[in-house]
């Protein structure tokens, strides 16, 4: 009995660093954020308890509802687009060919570039007058083409989702899928070949079910990345206002704007609570869907 207690103490001692880190850097900030959302705290530190006023004001604000709508749309599309792209890239890299390592290096290279630098580079590419893309298009068309890629509502989403294909999150997904694909038993493909299965049939009936746990993992991490990491991508591209006309103003941009441009820290905390809940709902939904769709080998 004494030995068992001793073992427990040692085990707790081992996990103590993690518990301290969790308490200080995760639990306390969350509790503090919720508590601050009930105050009118400004960036200069002046603060007074105001109950649920921030939430009442938020639910009356058309800016908030627009931002929530954009956040949900952006998250869903980004997760779908990046996951599909990562699977396609992983499938291509999984096929036997020469220079596979070089291809993998080239595909993954943009992913290790910091997102802010990547966004600024693409901002230059998608510029209206001096942008690289418009110059190339003009060269091929033989006339001056000036598409306002980042300021038109019908082109901005195309640009943003295109850039997400080169972010770290997508590159990481690709590597995870690649390792998952190499673990799919070869016998399954050999058996299906004997049955005359086509590539599409093999993909949907063998590959996809076998890597479905990885799809679940990547969908959850991609979702969190879209909700929290979108700031670093969108701020340099479309500013804190989510240009054009608020089309890209996700909640993380609005939180920054309220806290650091308008000095409304309490209100920004209330928005952060909503973002926290949105992330929780997305996570819950993905897990609920996965119960019916994810295949686990016993």
């Amino acid at each position: 009995m004494r030995r068992k207690n001793q073992d427990n103490k040692v085990a707790y001692a081992f996990i103590l660093p993690w518990i301290i880190g969790f308490l200080c850097f995760t639990l306390f900030p969350i509790i503090f954020m919720v508590q601050q959302s009930l105050t009118n705290r400004k960036l200069n530190g002046v603060s007074k308890f105001i109950g649920l006023t921030n939430y009442k004001n938020m639910f009356r604000s058309s800016v908030f509802w627009n931002s929530l709508r954009v956040t949900i749309f952006f998250t869903i599309v980004m997760v779908v687009v990046t996951t599909i792209w990562a699977i396609i890239m992983a499938l291509l890299l999984n096929s036997k060919q020469r220079f596979n390592g070089i291809f993998q290096f080239c595909y993954f290279l943009p992913s290790v570039v910091p997102t802010v630098a990547l966004a600024y580079a693409f901002r230059t590419i998608f510029g209206k007058n001096a942008g690289l893309l418009n110059n190339i298009l003009s060269m091929f068309a033989g006339r001056n083409i000036e598409v306002n890629w980042l300021y038109q509502q019908n082109t901005i989403y195309f640009v943003v989702f295109f850039i997400t294909l080169f972010t770290y999150s997508t590159g990481q997904m690709m590597l995870i899928f690649r390792s998952g694909l190499s673990d799919v038993p070869k016998e399954l493909y050999e058996a299906s070949n004997l049955d005359g299965a086509t590539f599409i049939q093999k993909f949907f009936h063998i590959t996809l079910p076998m890597i479905s746990p990885l799809i679940l993992f990547n969908a959850v991490s991609g979702c969190v990345s879209a909700l929290n990491g979108s700031f670093a991508l969108l701020y340099p591209l479309t500013s804190e206002n989510g240009d054009p006309n608020g089309s890209t103003q996700v909640l993380s941009l609005l939180i920054y704007k309220e806290a650091f441009s308008n000095m409304k820290v309490g209100y920004a905390c209330a928005l952060s609570v909503i973002l926290f809940l949105v992330a929780a709902v997305f996570g819950g939904l993905i897990f609920a869907i996965s119960k019916k769709t994810v295949y686990y080998e016993d």
């Binding site: 509790i31 503090f32 508590q35 601050q36 105050t39 705290r41 603060s47 007074k48």
Partner: peptide
């Protein structure tokens, strides 16, 4: 931790 957080913010600072 919870008490510290609550006391740190709830009061008029």
């Amino acid at each position: 931790v919870m008490m510290t957080g609550t006391l740190a913010g709830c009061g008029e600072s």
